[in-house]
Amino acid sequence: MYPNDLLYTKTHEWARVEGETATMGVTWFAQEQLGDLTFVELPEIGRSVTPGEEIGSVESVKAASEIYSPLAGEVIKVNQDLENAPELVNQDPYGRGWMVRIRLSARPEGLLEASAYAALTAGQGH
């Protein structure tokens, strides 16, 4: 549920850092809590983002939630498949359900390892 090669936020985003760029999305826990996603709003390409900044939102049949950037940098790509197929986030949150690619302007800071994130979520939810 929480791959070891990713970093996590307390607000349920994940980040895969690869050199100067990182890919991010929302975690298995987030999509499980929201249920079937019906809408994903992503940021404009070129936007500068800072850690903890609201960069988009997701809606499910019953709920809505914000997406926060885990990292500092510039948005260089967004997953346009999610516009018409938000269910990819439910089906494959760390793969085809990725959301945003960021060119990093600073090293990741304050993010959780998989084990710490798993411990955080263990006490939440149903």
Binding site: G35, D36, T38, S60, V61, K62, E87, N90, H126
Partner: peptide, 20 residues
């Protein structure tokens, strides 16, 4: 099932997913 309160009852909101 995911359960939630509805009209004072503990009710199932979904099993495999609302869309399915």
């Amino acid at each position: 099932a995911k359960m939630a309160p509805f009209a004072g009852y503990d009710m199932p909101v979904q099993y495999e997913g609302i869309l399915a």
